[in-house]
């Protein structure tokens, strides 16, 4: 797992008074498993863009952490 991404996800959760998750994996679903709603996903997008320079939701919906990691990797490559 990308540690920076985990930190960002837990930052968004903390803002909702939710405890950090330590068992995230590529198949974790953002809504069902991570517990993020649409406005949380907007905040997540902004924080990811600031850190990695990619707007992960710009070209369609993203459902899992693995899909975010793939988009980040594509920009880095």
């Amino acid at each position: 797992m990308n540690e920076k991404l985990v930190t960002i996800i837990n930052e968004v959760r903390a803002n909702k008074q939710q405890p950090p998750l330590n068992d995230l994996c590529a198949s974790s679903r953002l809504r069902e498993d991570v517990g993020l709603e649409s406005l949380d996903l907007a905040e997540l997008t902004v924080r990811i863009e600031e850190k990695f320079g990619v707007d992960v939701f710009a070209d369609g919906l993203v459902h899992t952490i693995g899909e975010i990691e793939a988009k980040i990797a594509r920009v880095k490559a």
């Binding site: 803002n15 907007a42 905040e43 997008t45 902004v46 924080r47």
Partner: peptide, 9 residues
């Protein structure tokens, strides 16, 4: 602007 406000809370 809203994205900006979200980032800086």
């Amino acid at each position: 602007a809203i994205r900006h406000m979200l980032f800086n809370r």
